[in-house]
Design a protein around this nucleic acid. Structure first.
Length: 227
DNA sequence: AAAGGAGTCAACCGCCTATTA
DNA sequence: GTAATAGGCGGTTGACTCCTT
């Protein structure tokens, strides 16, 4: 079967959004709510593809979006979550209120990858997620009743690994690890030693390496990552 | 001051999955 | 059961800005 294009590109505007377009989109969504992205541009009077409208709303116009100034805590959380989830940017973004998947993805590619590489850390501690396991939540909006009954999304995690507090403390930021300014490595100046210590930071072994039997039970991601 | 390189990030592309007809 | 459609996602691109020479 042929895939129809998401929209006819003839006559549609591309590139950066003007403030007028932003206003039109935001006003329309405030009045009618999100969704119906295909028909939205026409009804809102925008010469844009529906996907483009959705992206603009999700990454820029949506209320509550924080922009820039990713804090050390957030950075730390991104690295931890990436270690667990890999390039599942939308999932990672879901754990960082006000942050978008696009922003996190950009931040990872421009800042964190470099930082990790500099520190000699393999930024891909997990295996690529098998395509089969790419699951999504049902698109139907749950009712209030459903939300009470619905099971939280479970993520299979291996058993937690105890890492000696001499390697790093819970309060130690990722930055301090990468920069090597830990008290334990201070002054040692031994690159190999530092590398080993930092490698221990990777919070869990590869997430999807384990089959169901060897998994050792399911854990909620909340148990591993502080909200 | 100008040119070129590097860094950043908004937006696009194409694929995948879920839903609907 | 199958095809079409819609929404969502991750990867990539390219325009813009900043920095260095």
């Amino acid at each position: 079967m042929g895939r129809s294009p998401c929209c006819s590109k003839v006559g549609l505007k591309r590139g950066p959004w003007s403030t007028k377009e932003d206003t039109l989109l935001a006003n329309y969504i405030h009045q009618h709510g999100e969704g119906q992205w295909r028909s939205l541009p026409k009804q809102a009077g925008l010469l844009r593809c529906g996907k483009s409208c959705r992206l603009r709303w999700m990454n820029y116009l949506r209320p509550g979006i924080k922009r820039g100034n990713i804090s050390e805590d957030e950075e730390d959380l991104i690295v931890r979550l990436h270690g667990l989830l890999g390039n599942r940017w939308s999932l990672i973004a879901g754990r960082l209120p006000g942050r978008t998947d696009n922003e996190i993805k950009n931040y990872w590619n421009t800042h964190l990858l470099k930082k990790l590489n500099t520190a000699g850390i393999n930024p891909i501690p997990h295996k690529t997620l098998p395509k089969k396991q790419r699951t999504k939540a049902p698109r139907v909006k749950p009712t209030a009743d459903d939300q009470q009954q619905v099971n939280p999304i479970k993520v299979y995690l291996p058993k937690p690994i105890r890492v000696s507090s001499s390697v790093f403390s819970r309060t130690q930021s990722y930055d301090s690890l990468v920069s090597g300014s830990t008290s334990s490595s201070e002054g040692s100046g031994e690159p190999a030693e530092k590398l080993t210590e930092v490698a221990s930071y990777v919070p869990c072994p590869p997430l999807f390496e384990l089959d169901d039997e060897s998994c050792g039970g399911d854990f909620l991601i909340e148990e591993c990552i502080p909200a």
